[in-house]
Amino acid sequence: MLWINGFVGTSPTFDHIARILASDYLMPLAFSAVIFAIWFVGRDLADRRRYQRGTLLSAIAIGIANLVVDIIDSAYDRQRPFDELGDSLQLIFYRSTDPSFPANPMAVVFAIAMGVWIVDRRIGWVLMAAAAIYSVIRVYVGTFYPTDVIGGAVIGILAALITWFIFELLKPVPEIFLRILRGIGVA
């Protein structure tokens, strides 16, 4: 943790980039825009249905991941690194007040990345890489421990896999849902 955070101040330009990348708005918005965009991206009906399944899967996985994070947060209140490590840490982000473990933003972005990976490996890997960068940056700016982001990532990935499993169990309910949405012109 301190090793990664120790590079803060080495390059002011990189610190500026890190503050933007670590923000609450940029990466989550980019990931959300991707799952919104893939709803429309398929070239034919079968292709589109596959991607729309990915959007549904990711959206439900986000809900499950958040629920798991909330349950863990209510049972285990891990202090933020800036509270525990004090002056040995260089914080270049705001002081979050919610528990540190597991990292909620990581749970969300990894749930999306895994949900997309299930339907499209290529876009999925790109999102996984972006989610990994987001995780490292959050540790760099001093707002999470590495174990927080790993915990968040595991929760997100598992949430997407569980959602996929539920989709398989409920087959063809998601397909019927998409058929109805197609009937009202939105899928």
Binding site: D24, I62, Y94
Partner: peptide, 24 residues
């Protein structure tokens, strides 16, 4: 200050995660 200007804690007027999701 631009890079950090938008990094506002939700207890000081920033937005919570749920709000980001709803507004998106």
């Amino acid at each position: 200050e631009i890079s950090g200007a938008r990094n506002l804690n939700d207890i000081h007027g920033g937005m919570a995660g749920t709000a980001y999701a709803v507004f998106f």
